[in-house]
Design a protein around this nucleic acid. Sequence first.
DNA 1: CTAATTTGTAAACGGCCATGACGAAATAGT
DNA 2: ACTATTTCGTCATGGCCGTTTACAAATTAG
Lengths: 403, 403
Amino acid sequence: MTAPLHEAHPAGPGRALPDTQQGMRRRNLARVMHAVSAQGPLSRAAVASRIGLTRAAVSTLVDELIRSGLLEELGPERPGRRVGRPGSALAVSGHGPAGIGAEVGVDHLAVCAVDLRGEVRARAVRYGANRGRPPEPVIEELAGLVRRVVAEAERAGLWPAGLAVAVPGLVARDARTVVRAPNLDWHDTDLGALLPVEYPLTVGNEANFGALAELWLGDGTPRDFLHVSAEIGIGAAVVVDGALLRGTRGFAGELGHVPVRPDGPKCPCGGRGCLEQYAGEEAVLRAAGLEPGEDRVGLLAGRAAEGDEDVRGALHDAGTALGIALTGAVNLLDPESVVLGGALAGLAPWLLPSLEAELDRRTAGPACPVAVSRLGSEGPLLGAAHSVVRAVLDDPAAVAERA
Amino acid sequence: MTAPLHEAHPAGPGRALPDTQQGMRRRNLARVMHAVSAQGPLSRAAVASRIGLTRAAVSTLVDELIRSGLLEELGPERPGRRVGRPGSALAVSGHGPAGIGAEVGVDHLAVCAVDLRGEVRARAVRYGANRGRPPEPVIEELAGLVRRVVAEAERAGLWPAGLAVAVPGLVARDARTVVRAPNLDWHDTDLGALLPVEYPLTVGNEANFGALAELWLGDGTPRDFLHVSAEIGIGAAVVVDGALLRGTRGFAGELGHVPVRPDGPKCPCGGRGCLEQYAGEEAVLRAAGLEPGEDRVGLLAGRAAEGDEDVRGALHDAGTALGIALTGAVNLLDPESVVLGGALAGLAPWLLPSLEAELDRRTAGPACPVAVSRLGSEGPLLGAAHSVVRAVLDDPAAVAERA
DNA sequence: CTAATTTGTAAACGGCCATGACGAAATAGT
DNA sequence: ACTATTTCGTCATGGCCGTTTACAAATTAG
């Protein structure tokens, strides 16, 4: 596939590829795909005005994309009240390449296929605790689901352009190796070796994929935000100018181990008073006087809704701790908003008051707005599948060669 | 191996300009400038192999840059032991455009001119407390220094390509307005209106410019780091993949108000136990039993060197607080290193032990390395001047039109 | 002094987008 | 119903730009 195309400076050292006409063509093909994908069916003329090229140029680009099977001609538009010849509507193809997303959860596995239009065309889920199981059988099971989903997608006229796997843990920058997944008890596991597929494989952190889903699918989500999600640990993802901040080793976003009370209880990470000691699932359950077990989040939400004072108190305190940690993060990053996702989304009603109070109290100007994701637990899976789709939109020429 | 997907989009909404041949030309001109600037004198053939274009293409690019006065032909190289015709060395011009940097400090003003080669060709400094003075007379004084430096630069055959001003406070994203500079007591001050110049003006935060100086001038500084600097307040700058993270409002990097002890002493920002309450200059002086006054940093360093236990204790505690705040930041950003700059650089010997201990103690794996800037207090001024130079290298065609 | 190698330039070539013109297809007005 | 107007998609032409190919110049190796 393509090299990393980072865009810090317009022409700075970031650009690795020589700037030649072929590169220009490739980028313009991508611009057309993005325009059509984002703005719904569009005529050639509409695309041209949007991306700043002439109609003639767009015509040839569109021809090429149609020949590659990435765009489809829907036929003449029914114009409202506009004079002039109506355009011919173009849409992203519903056949052709599909992004396969997979998720390894603590107690489930899920796989789905998303077409270029962003629609989920096939899916498979399997419940069952994975905590403590060695990686091999889990991945074997996941591979089975992938095969099923790919088969179903193929019957629908799609072919897999790539597979992205979301895992609840730290993933190295090579996007293949799970360095540490405490909730699965996996360490330095090379999923690339365990999951051989004949299309590109990417492994990523669950919170990161959740944030990307929020970015791409959320309505009104800005291009700079902090996405906080919790399953068992607490993860965050930093999105800056529409791109994920990954960190040198790929470990950025470890909000769970930000110190909240420096002399607080010891944490397995070595520190003291980390956020996870106050707002992690285990800590909240303990504070609420509940036992760990299945679907603890649902239990918490249920009890809180019933008015259980212990549970509400525990969530209130967790919100306070989150607010303290987020104050630090917001001061450092100045994001446009904070989005609560994953399990936090379901518990938001009881977390938000104390969280926002803390954030507000500790901020000089207007506090950073806190929003709740409407994707909830679907985020990581959809984000993974869409990341493959975005890769296709970002370089359609590369995919056309493989089609 | 392929890069992780989605660091940024090659043709996403980020790219504003249509991708046309002129744009390609501009980017290639920039590539040539960057190559020559970074890798010392280079022949056309060397440039070609470095940026991936052919010798013929580079020849025409170089011709254009020489005609614009941005490159100079030094004449034939004396080849060591290589066969073949020797190349003709090209270097960035020592005449032509210059970057003017300016700094508004709490008790000094400074201006310098840097040529495209990165050399300081003129400078002017003026000591005197600016704290509490209204912006108008201060800027008037600064304008006088700028005129002197520009005049001196012009005598050396340079012309000002832009002016960048570093201020100790928050600057809005428009890069003109100082929103809040507590140590100067300035609020919502539009420097663009106060400092009329006939070349582009940029205003930026001092810590940010210091970080850019570290990035561009520091030896071995990575492209992903956290630069912490302190004059009176504590500022930080986040550099991600060689670019500054600015934040939505331009306020990113406010490390001084990260909560360190959530129930600690009240802070003017509204919060409690902010880092500045422990490691800010005022707090450290109080803890050391010293009065505020002139050159307090030098005083602290002197006393600490003499072995003053009170001062050493105060710095030890400040280091601990910094370590706690930085643990949070490092967890969130996973930078390649942390760099201490500004006043912190001079106090590093007494801050570092407790700071690193705290960072190490609270980190699971190997702790993030902490380095000390060798630019010290020169950083912001140099960073400002160089930011103008970088702008020229990034788009030489724009400058050529004005030459 | 010759062969080999590398540099810089010039001419021909090909790819790509812009320009301008044209037919096609719709609406608005008569 | 018919014409004027507007917009769409396409084609031919032209200009820009990097590549290819060829060649003279300048140096080293033998």
